[in-house]
Design a protein around this nucleic acid. Structure first.
Length: 945
RNA sequence: GCUCGGGUGGUGGAAUUGGUAGACACGUUGGACUUAAAAUCCAAUGACUAUUGCAGUCGUGCGGGUUCAAGUCCCGCCCCGAGUACCA
């Protein structure tokens, strides 16, 4: 069949701007909370509105979620598909420091630009529910949740958060000795009389040890270059995630969130949610549960004892020394006069080490003897006490028993300092290295464990230690309480004032506590956070409002907290706010929360696995404990979209010259400097536009370019897309050249949604051509030729198969194969010369989630008045497809799968029916007869003609 | 080191439960249409052998195994990516 097609105009520019305006004007995607339809909540991780605007990688997740949202609308759901901005953050603040421009102003401009870009791509967001974390309407509720956390503690009996008043009541009646609650390690025990005798200040200090958000002297990650502390997940390889500056450990008075109280539930409830395994695994590792035993070692010549935590109590007979973390307070008490000097020097040195040094020098063994000894609890032997920074103060008890035979680090330490090594595994040589496996040995030199296997010995020793009162079984977690304060300006103010050194909450009635204006966004000369520059930053407890600093009298006017909340505060609960985003009375009404329930599909980057995705689960659990939200887990299903990488372009400059050599002419014996050049200056065949290059940067003006085949070919390298690498592809430009629909489909077509992949503009023409061909189904020579004639069975088959395939693929989030299916369908229908309305109508609905602008245009041209967005989704007839597959029934005997060759003599009619039954047979049409057919149950495998 | 992913044409990637591997697209080559180019359309395109044609051999990182049948399942390696890192 030969058709000659004239060029058909696909005027995507006017189509797309027309429908963008239409959706906005008609509020097509606004949803309400009182629908009778079933609900579906599809959420994107909201963006930080950076000054650079969107690049081509950002919308990937939004396109996927928009396809699902539109698909679910067609399926008859009331779809909540909101968007907002995580608009507090460092870049706006740094810009403010440089230019003096208020972060609120730049943030507003950036948001404006982001919205324009997002709308251009045709996302069906309900903007009436937009949230901005930096808006007081929003952050008053972030502050409100902060205060709730402050006013609650974690009860281990009921396994939930409870009001602090209930704790105070118990203190008043019984003291704290019978209380089973999460608190700081150093909380003293007291009776009810003692509690009542305490001063207000003392009582408050004790309560801080229980509150779920609290102020304490903790070791923090201090980054002097950023002038702020960082959370653990913001420190990567010992340097700051942002900027890569060195980070130090430092003791500071800091706000923290008692996320450790929820460690167990955060771990266990991972089983309830359908999240990608890597994310779950990362959270599991981050929480880091381990089962072990805390064992008490009596100090020689001291009343006190030291507890160690170990997961291998069975190796206790191999313990030949004890090592403490240098930071522990007890170190100073036990150090003998003789060793005082060396110990103090060592402590000093290790505290000044950068985190990076500690990591890099991990294998470099250091430590020093304290002069003291502990007694082995089972053998009564004298074990020397050492300190070393391989022991971490914040894990376990900060003390380990040194078992060189069973632990590699202990072995290295013992070898380095010539401490004894006791072999405890029968038949295993412990002198060279430790044996860390948990099978394949029996014990020796191990008292009551001798001759037992690991399994027997492990159980035996625990039983013994516990019954003798020496040890206690314990579950330990790696996860640490999250530092919840930044020394920055552009964040939520913490609604706390300070009285006698005690933090006191502001009554939530008087929220929001509005961020004050300052003249300088830098820390004060005294080193206080930027809020220290504010003139109006004191709390009047009688008028309950912010007043000027000079009114502070420490009687009724007190200084306000100067720290602000970290970046993850606002994002830890925003998904709840969308259900009722304009509510000024509550963070969200119970009715709205009950209607929308949890997020059905959440799409965002995997980089938030141990940050936002963990903190938000924690807050959700806390809010659920208080009965404020109806679900323990807020997102049923999570998908991580992979990053779209840039393809950087390089020119090669010969060393010490102005000669640039084309990629394939490089001489392996010479040295070249690869220099990144702007990818816009390079054609899709990697040829460089030298004229434009010379205009772009003056350093190339004098360059001599050695060409191959008349062209300069650049080198390529796949890297993260970033402005500094000159490899950013701007979606606006793609929209101008190909249109938003093409961009949407192409991003989906690139590959599986969760995979990282390099951007390649060259391939986009394939998808663009598909859309042009799609229009061709409706027209010929520019004329509309949709017909009313009923569809043929072959056409119907194409349609039903496509519906089935596309629907299945959307349901399993395989969007790339969807796009392929559309192309196949389109090609087949063109070949069949199909212009039937019966086929094109459902096909247009099917395409609408992917290419919404074009679908709307075609839908209107088909004579429909309403937007296509709420058209019922076409249903494929399983019966019809089955009917077709059964067109030529083949039966078998036996259960086992087998291959069988059948000799056939089929008539033309039979062949046609056979062809209907199986796609692959189409090419055998036109009179050829089928001789043999190889079959397995329910499937034709091979045909011999 | 440990944990989790993943290795399929020149390229991006298909292949729901084991059932004609390489769909779909890019790129490349040839052709049609054009004064020409672009655009569009048609054809070929895993490798090798053979050719007038039919066809044959090898092919999913490597080596084994299970099966009538393996990209897919099992065992042992190699390589790449991500996360994590003195966690006792």
């Amino acid at each position: 069949m030969h058709f000659i097609y004239k060029k058909l105009k696909y005027d995507f520019q006017s189509i797309e701007s027309k429908w963008e305006a239409y959706w906005k004007k008609n509020k097509t995607f606004q949803v309400f909370n009182d629908s009778k339809k079933p609900k579906y909540y599809v959420l994107d991780m909201f963006p930080y509105p950076s000054g650079a605007g969107l690049h081509v990688g950002h919308p990937l997740g939004y396109i996927a979620s928009d396809i699902v949202a539109r698909y679910k609308r067609h399926c008859g759901y009331n779809v909540l598909h909101p968007q907002g901005f995580d608009s507090f953050g460092l870049p706006a603040e740094q810009y403010a420091i440089q230019t003096g421009q208020h972060p609120a102003k730049t943030t507003k401009q950036n948001i404006q630009r982001y919205k324009e870009q997002l709308n251009r791509l045709g996302f069906s967001f309900d903007w009436s529910r937009e949230v901005q974390t930096s808006s007081p309407d929003y952050y008053q509720w972030t502050q409100w949740i902060f205060l709730l956390l402050f006013e609650h503690y974690y009860d281990l009996k009921e396994n939930k958060a409870k009001p602090i008043e209930s704790l105070i009541r118990q203190f008043n009646t019984n003291g704290n000795q019978t209380i089973h609650a999460v608190c700081d390690e150093d909380t003293p025990l007291f009776s009810n009389q003692q509690w009542q005798s305490f001063s207000w200040k003392k009582q408050q200090q004790i309560l801080l040890k229980y509150r779920l958000t609290y102020l304490s002297d903790t070791d923090v990650n201090w980054c002097p270059d950023l002038g702020t502390v960082l959370a653990n997940d913001e420190v990567i390889d010992g340097v700051s995630e942002r900027g890569g500056y060195p980070v130090f450990r430092k003791k500071m008075s800091q706000w923290s969130m008692r996320i450790t109280a929820y460690a167990k539930r955060l771990l266990e409830d991972l089983d309830l949610i359908d999240w990608p395994d890597p994310v779950k695994e990362m959270q599991r590792n981050w929480i880091g549960q381990s089962q072990g035993v805390k064992i008490e070692f009596q100090l020689l010549n001291h009343k006190e004892s030291i507890k160690v935590y170990t997961t291998r109590p069975d190796t206790i007979f191999g313990a030949t020394f004890m090592t403490l973390a240098p930071e522990l307070d007890i170190v100073k008490q036990i150090t003998t006069a003789e060793y005082k000097q060396t110990v103090e020097t060592y402590i000093e040195q290790s505290s000044q080490k950068r985190i990076l040094d500690r990591l890099v020098n991990a294998k470099k063994i250091s430590g020093t003897f304290t002069g003291s000894y502990v007694l082995h609890p089972l053998t009564n032997e004298k074990l020397p006490i050492w300190i070393s920074d391989y022991v971490l103060a914040e894990y376990g008890t900060g003390a380990v028993m040194g078992v060189p035979a069973g632990d590699q680090r202990d072995h290295a330490f013992a070898t380095h300092f010539e401490l004894p090594i006791v072999a405890i595994f029968e038949g295993i040589d412990s002198s060279k290295e430790a044996f860390t496996q948990k099978e394949g040995f029996t014990y020796k030199n191990s008292g009551l464990l001798n001759g037992l296997s690991f399994k027997e010995g492990y159980a035996r020793i625990i039983k013994h230690l516990v019954s003798d009162g020496i040890g206690k079984q314990e579950t330990n977690y790696k996860i640490k309480d999250a530092v919840f304060a930044r020394q920055r300006y552009w964040g939520e103010p913490i609604p706390i004032y300070h009285k006698e050194g005690i933090p006191v909450p502001i009554n939530p009635k008087y929220l929001p506590l509005i961020l004050p204006s300052v003249e300088k966004y830098l820390p004060t000369p005294q080193g206080a956070p930027p809020l220290g520059n504010a003139n109006q930053w004191a709390w009047d407890t009688e008028q309950n409002r912010v007043v000027e600093n000079h009114m502070i009298d420490l009687k009724k006017v007190f200084p306000l907290e100067l720290n602000t909340m970290p970046g993850w505060a606002g994002s830890s609960w925003y998904f709840n706010r969308y259900t009722d985003a304009n509510n000024s009375k509550e963070f969200a009404s119970q009715k709205a929360l009950a209607y929308w329930k949890e997020v059905d599909l959440y799409i965002g980057g995997v980089e938030h696995a141990t940050g936002h995705l963990l903190y938000s689960r924690f807050w959700q659990k806390f809010l659920a404990d208080l009965g404020l939200v109806p679900f323990q887990e807020y997102a049923k299903k999570l998908i991580n979209q992979g990053m779209i990488l840039g393809s950087s372009a390089f020119v090669y400059r010969q060393k010490d010259s102005q000669i640039y050599v084309s990629k394939n002419l490089l001489d392996p014996n010479k040295t070249y400097h690869p220099i990144r050049v702007e990818v816009d200056l390079v054609s899709s065949s990697d040829a460089l536009n030298i004229e434009k290059l010379k205009e772009w940067q003056p350093q190339f003006k004098e360059g001599r370019f050695i060409l191959e085949g008349g062209k300069y070919i650049v080198g390529r390298e796949v890297e993260k897309m970033s402005k500094s690498k000159f490899n950013v592809v701007n979606p606006d430009q793609i929209c101008v050249e190909y249109g938003a629909d093409t961009l949407r489909m192409y991003e989906m077509f690139l590959g599986p949604i969760d995979q990282a992949k390099p951007w390649n503009t060259a391939g986009i023409s394939g998808v663009h051509n598909f859309l042009k061909r799609f229009i061709r189904l409706f027209s010929q020579d520019g004329n509309w030729i949709v017909t009313e004639r009923p569809a043929s069975s072959l056409e119907l088959k194409v349609l039903h198969q496509t519906i089935k395939k596309v629907t299945n693929d959307i349901e399993r989030y395989s969007f790339n194969t969807c796009v392929s299916s559309f192309m196949i369908a389109c090609n087949k229908l063109i070949e069949l010369d199909c212009h039937s309305k019966d086929i094109l109508k459902p096909l247009t609905i099917l395409l609408s989630p992917f290419a919404p602008h074009l679908a709307e245009e075609m839908w209107e041209k088909l004579g429909n008045q309403q937007s296509i967005a709420y058209e019922p989704y076409p249903i494929h007839s399983e019966a019809y497809l089955k009917e077709l597959t059964k067109a030529y029934p083949i039966s078998f005997n036996g259960k086992k799968r087998f291959t069988k060759t059948i000799e056939l003599n089929l008539s033309k009619d039979e062949i046609e029916r056979l062809i209907l039954s199986d796609n692959r047979l189409e090419k055998y049409l036109n009179g050829k007869s089928i001789k043999k057919i190889i079959v397995v149950p329910n499937k034709i495998v091979n045909i011999v003609i």
